[in-house]
Amino acid sequence: MNDGDPDPARAIRTLRPDQLIVLRVEGKPLRFRKIVDTETGHPTDGVRPEPADAEIWHDLQTRRGSMITVDPERPMPDPYLLPLSATLTEWNSPDDAAAYDGL
């Protein structure tokens, strides 16, 4: 997923086949994988919930036709390290973010 992408549909379209994305659906983070067409092997624009999140997704299907909120999951900053971010600016490069974010 492209970090900072406010459009979940665009983020899903840019995923590689079988790549994982976390979306916040109705306030709950759910993990999905990009679907590959099993007959052709080509990627699709669809995603499928991971097995651990499938039941929650299935429950949401009972609300089919009603509006739900879907947002890309944004990791919460570590409250301990947040004050240090202003003093350790040499670590605020895109290369460092790619290497160390999510640890």
Rank of each mutant, 00 (worst) to 15 (best):
S93Y: 05
P17W: 03
E50T: 09
D96F: 10
S85V: 11
T38Y: 02
A54Q: 09
E55N: 05
I35M: 06
Q61G: 11
L15R: 00
P72G: 08
R13F: 09
S93R: 04
A54T: 08
G46Q: 09
R31E: 04
T14C: 08
G41A: 01
P75K: 06
L23G: 13
V22N: 02
D53F: 01
A52I: 09
D45Q: 00
E39L: 14
I35N: 11
D53N: 13
H58Q: 13
R63H: 13
S85Y: 01
P17R: 00
R13E: 14
P51Y: 02
V22Q: 10
H42Q: 14
A97D: 07
L30K: 08
A86P: 04
V25H: 13
R31A: 15
I12L: 07
G27K: 03
D95K: 05
E39K: 01
G41Y: 03
H42Y: 01
W57H: 07
G65Q: 07
P17I: 10
I56L: 05
F32C: 11
P17D: 02
E90H: 10
I12Y: 05
P72H: 01
H42M: 12
A97Y: 09
M67Q: 13
D71H: 13
R31M: 02
P79E: 07
T89Q: 14
I35V: 14
V36E: 13
D18V: 00
T87Y: 15
P43K: 10
D37P: 14
G46R: 11
P72K: 04
H58K: 10
Y80P: 03
T89C: 06
H58W: 09
R48K: 12
S66M: 04
T87I: 13
H42P: 02
E26R: 12
K28R: 15
L15A: 01
R33P: 04
T14V: 03
D95N: 07
P72S: 07
N92A: 12
W91K: 05
S66F: 00
D78E: 01
T14R: 14
T89Y: 07
R16H: 11
V25F: 09
